[in-house]
Amino acid sequence: MTADDDRRFASPPCMAADIAPEYFDQQQPNDVARWRRAERARLHAARQAMRVEDRRAAGEALAGHLRDLLAARFGEMRDRVVSAYWPINGEPDLRPLMADLHAAGATVALPLVEVKRSPLVFRHWSPATRMVRGDWNIPVPPDTAAAVTPEITLAPLMGWDPAGYRLGYGGGYFDRTLAALSPRSVTIGVGFQAARLDTIHPQPHDIALDFIVTEAGLQVDRDAP
């Protein structure tokens, strides 16, 4: 058997992502989906294992870096519309930053699912908002809260890579939302430094974020020359 025969009939190795990234990324979406499920489970377990005080300190540092980025990129926050998120499953807690943005005159919104497998809807939030339970029991503003379109969207990350791609929870809601927003908002991924991956093996439906911020500072700036 010749070397050409070997190449023609050999099965792709389990390390195909390292040996032939183009095979893994473009031609084997089922392999990518399995890999992502495993990575989500691993990263979620690592995040849940963080000590409470470490998670709190990381969240405070991250919020400080976000304040610096918002000031440098947007300046005055008055009348800006900023979508944040309500923390679940050990995500960085940005609620103090949300309150500060509200006090600075920004309109703060939270995303929620109104229709399954459809883009997210954003409702106005303030520290006085009486929250209700939405999908997955996540607190969300009530139906009476005004719907808004965010200019800036803060997106929690399960994982992230240096190209700006986000590994989320697997429902696809965030990518659908970005694709539907017109004009598209400036997107800032928010996560822990330990959640960095070499790549998420982006697929055609994945949309890169504009910035990624962790407790270690600004990690991705796709506006940079």
Rank of each mutant, 00 (worst) to 15 (best):
P127C: 09
S182M: 11
A147C: 15
L197E: 00
A195G: 04
T214R: 01
I138P: 00
W136A: 14
R123P: 01
F192E: 00
W125I: 07
P162H: 09
R166E: 09
A128F: 11
P183T: 07
P202T: 10
P150T: 07
A179E: 07
W160S: 04
A194I: 12
G168M: 08
V186E: 00
R184H: 07
S182A: 12
N137G: 13
T187F: 01
V148C: 13
I188C: 04
I212H: 07
L157N: 03
L181R: 12
S182H: 13
L209W: 03
T177H: 03
H124P: 09
I188T: 03
P139K: 02
Y173D: 02
P202E: 10
T144K: 09
Q193C: 11
A163V: 07
A194Y: 09
S185T: 05
I138Q: 01
G168P: 08
P119Q: 04
Y173M: 02
V190C: 10
R123A: 01
M158W: 09
A180H: 05
M158S: 14
Q193T: 12
A145E: 08
R196L: 13
G159H: 06
G171E: 02
T149K: 15
L209V: 11
D143K: 13
G189R: 00
R130Y: 11
V132R: 14
H124I: 14
E151F: 08
S126M: 10
G170N: 08
D161K: 05
R176M: 02
A128V: 12
G134M: 03
Y169F: 10
T199G: 07
A194V: 10
P183E: 07
G164A: 06
D143M: 12
L209I: 10
I188E: 00
V132W: 10
V148D: 09
P141R: 04
G164N: 03
Q203C: 08
P183A: 07
T129V: 13
W160L: 06
R130C: 15
F122G: 08
A155N: 12
F192Q: 02
R176F: 03
